[in-house]
Amino acid sequence: MGVVRDVWLVTKQLLEAVMAPWPPEEREARMAVVDELLRRREALLPKLRPPYSEEEQELGCEIIVWNQEIEARLRRVCEEIRRDLRMAGAKRQATVCYAHPYEQPLSFDGMFYDKRR
Rank of each mutant, 00 (worst) to 15 (best):
L15R: 13
C61A: 09
M87L: 10
L48I: 11
V96T: 10
R86D: 09
R83A: 14
R27H: 04
P101H: 03
Q13K: 11
P51F: 03
W8G: 02
Y98F: 09
L14R: 06
A29F: 00
R39A: 11
R30W: 02
H100G: 03
R92S: 15
W8M: 03
V7I: 15
T95L: 09
D35K: 08
I81E: 05
R82V: 13
Y102M: 11
E16W: 01
E79S: 12
E80N: 05
H100Y: 15
A43F: 08
E71Y: 00
E56Y: 02
Q68C: 02
Y98S: 15
R27M: 03
Q68W: 00
Q93L: 12
A43V: 13
M111P: 04
Y98A: 13
R86A: 06
R41G: 05
M1N: 13
V65R: 01
V34E: 01
W66L: 06
L15I: 06
R5K: 14
R92K: 15
E36M: 06
L44H: 14
I81W: 01
V77C: 11
C61D: 10
A72P: 04
V3A: 09
Y113Q: 06
L74H: 01
W22R: 09
M19P: 01
I63T: 00
G2M: 07
R5E: 14
L9Q: 12
R117A: 10
E62A: 11
W66R: 07
Q68A: 05
L38R: 06
E58C: 01
Q57C: 01
V10F: 01
L14Y: 06
A88E: 14
A32Q: 07
R116C: 05
D109K: 11
P46M: 12
